[in-house]
Design a protein around this nucleic acid. Structure first.
Lengths: 104, 104
DNA sequence: ATTGTATATCGCTTTTTTTCGATATGTCAA
DNA sequence: TTGACATATCGAAAAAAAGCGATATACAAT
């Protein structure tokens, strides 16, 4: 785990927002999963376009953010057709919170 | 609490080290508190010079780091004569860990 | 095959952060 | 009050990150 990359990923308002939106995807992305079948949408993945729209940043910026957050371990992605769905990596985040409590 | 400033403060190896060194000052700063009386040293404060020496960065850089970490809430300082002693703000850090667990 | 759409990547400029040496401030001791 | 020392602040150069439009890639549908 590259702890510093995690903290860097969290050092930005928009990225922090994205992480929190993805805690409750159905709440923050009402039209979520208009495309794909349940077995994907049910897991709380949201596609880049939907995230971009809400984040109000350019497509390339949001794509970059999501990639960065995934590399840090905070997110995971599933590609489904032409869409890439991102969701929180809850296991990692749970571990992280534990680590934070004991080691920071 | 400016969460982002906290994460920024944690996004640097040296600063992260300092925070961890200060968990066990007597272990990492053996000659700690050569100066000041117990009522200060007992609280785990370490002076800038000692931290600088261990961190192997310039005096101005370390001073800047410490200031940044204090502004973020992670550290608190006590001035004693010509020395400034920094120690962890454990209350804040505990709160932070809790926040992390529930909100991130 | 071609067109349209979603996402990723590239190249670039702007902004922010890092880091330092120099200098200022504050304190102690002679 | 002068000199020595600890720390803070200033100003600037270098490095890194942010953020965009343009372009590439990958897939879908016609």
């Amino acid at each position: 785990m590259e702890l510093i990359d995690v903290f860097k990923a969290l050092s930005n308002e928009t990225r922090l927002n994205i992480l929190q939106w993805l805690k409750e995807p159905e709440k923050h992305f009402p039209k979520q999963g208009a495309h794909l079948p349940k077995e994907v949408s049910i897991k709380g993945g949201v596609c880049v376009g939907d995230i971009q729209e809400k984040a109000k940043a350019s497509q390339s910026t949001v794509s970059h953010y999501l990639n960065m957050m995934q590399k840090a371990g905070l997110l995971e992605s599933v590609r489904y057709g032409q869409w890439t769905y991102y969701r929180r990596n809850e296991d990692f985040i749970r571990q992280l919170a534990e680590y934070f409590q004991t080691e920071i």
